[in-house]
Amino acid sequence: MSDARKPSSSGAAPYDALLLLSFGGPEAPEDVVPFLENVTRGRGIPRERLKEVGRHYFLFGGVSPINEQNRELLAALRKDFAGHGLDLPVYWGNRNWAPYLVDTLREMAADGHRRIAVLATSAYAGYSGCRQYRENLADALAVLAEEGCPALTVDKLRHFYNHPGFVEPMIDATVAALNELPEAVRPGARLAFTTHSIPDAMAETSGAPDDPARGTPGGAYVAQHLEVARLIAAAVAERTGVADRPWELVFQSRSGAPHIPWLEPDICDHLEAQHADGAPAVVMVPIGFVSDHMEVKYDLDTEAVAKAAELGLPVARAATVGADPRFTAAVRELVLERAATERGEGVSRCALGALGPSHDVCAVACCPNPRAARPAAAER
């Protein structure tokens, strides 16, 4: 943290609303294929293939948990803001399912809001975790402009992967997961920090290559995850008294063409390797996800747990942050921090570890679109 003073109590000005911006998910079986069509629009994927891809949603009744989890986070943010005297309305919009982003921004404009802070439910740098959200914001703003809506200014809050309000709940969750294991295997249990796999090329261009002062110059996606894993592993070692517990960053939820290199190892391959290496148990820690949505419930709780059972390898899975009060407090702090910065006030920027707080405004060349250049909001 810097030596500058903490955010003042003068409120969130110039912001007059906060937008919780998330991915979205189906809420009924008939929603699954249309939802996947939204996610994959422009890629020419046949409908029959989408039905196959959506099979894991059908295992859960065609309902993704993400929307209900966002409703919980929305309610928790509103409660936290009210409890701390922050008069800032909070709205929720999704990129790929109702409530759609453009509809929510239209509602915000109708309610008189003009300067909006945006919290994306993705903690890290990268195209799919940052720039794609900003592209969708630009698309929605363009639609509203065509409709004659008043102009809106949207500012995406900085990456929060190393904010204590995100890291500390994950530390507690990892210790709790270790305690779920049989006592005999706890001391030797290893940690597998999991996140969404992305293409190698996308990982290599994540960050701000034209302006290192604004973030890690390329390779930010992996570097930021490794930093969070290191922070959690060190804290868990101190809490449990096991100083040399092995850990590794692993990946999950690959969805691309097999001939394109994606980040590895996959969690199931990792479990096989750990079993072969004599690991007595593994705790899976989903640091790449804010809530227990489908990538966690299916790829970890279903597929990875089944693989571990097949191997006879004890596993446990740490909970995600969700609506933990420390996380909602962190969001409030991020809003006040950014507001103070926009007012020209000196302000402390809370972050753990060596990488420091992320940049507020993305560079134009940050996390480029791998398919074609597109306008993105909140950059310069």
Rank of each mutant, 00 (worst) to 15 (best):
S2M: 00
P14I: 04
Y15M: 14
L19P: 08
L21I: 05
S22L: 03
P26G: 05
L36W: 03
R43K: 10
R47V: 04
E48G: 10
K51D: 15
V53R: 12
R55K: 13
L59T: 08
F60I: 01
G61Q: 09
V63Q: 05
N67I: 13
E68A: 15
N70E: 14
E72A: 15
L73C: 04
V90Q: 07
W97A: 10
V102W: 00
M108K: 00
A109F: 13
R114L: 01
V118S: 03
A120T: 15
A120H: 12
G129L: 03
C130E: 09
Q132T: 12
E135T: 11
L137S: 09
A142S: 12
L144K: 00
G148R: 05
C149Y: 09
C149D: 08
V154R: 06
F160A: 00
N162V: 13
H163E: 03
P164M: 05
G165L: 12
E168P: 12
M170K: 14
V175Q: 12
V175I: 15
V185P: 03
L191Q: 02
P199Y: 06
D200I: 11
M202I: 12
E204I: 02
E204K: 15
G207P: 01
D211V: 10
D211N: 10
P217W: 00
Y221N: 04
A223D: 03
Q224K: 02
Q224T: 09
L226G: 11
E227R: 01
E227W: 00
V228G: 04
R230N: 07
E238A: 15
T240W: 04
E248H: 12
V250H: 06
F251I: 13
S253V: 08
S253H: 04
P258H: 07
P258E: 07
I260D: 01
P261K: 08
P261M: 07
W262F: 14
D266V: 03
H270M: 03
A273K: 12
Q274K: 12
Q274V: 14
H275R: 14
V282T: 14
V283T: 09
V283P: 05
V285T: 03
V285N: 02
H293V: 07
H293G: 08
M294H: 09
E295Q: 10
A309W: 07
E310L: 11
L311P: 04
P314V: 05
A319K: 07
T320V: 11
G322C: 06
D324C: 07
R326V: 08
L334D: 01
V335D: 07
L336A: 04
A340H: 09
T341L: 13
E342S: 13
R343M: 05
R349E: 05
P357M: 03
S358Q: 13
D360K: 00
C362N: 12
C367W: 09
P370C: 03
A372M: 02
A373T: 01
A373G: 02
R374W: 00
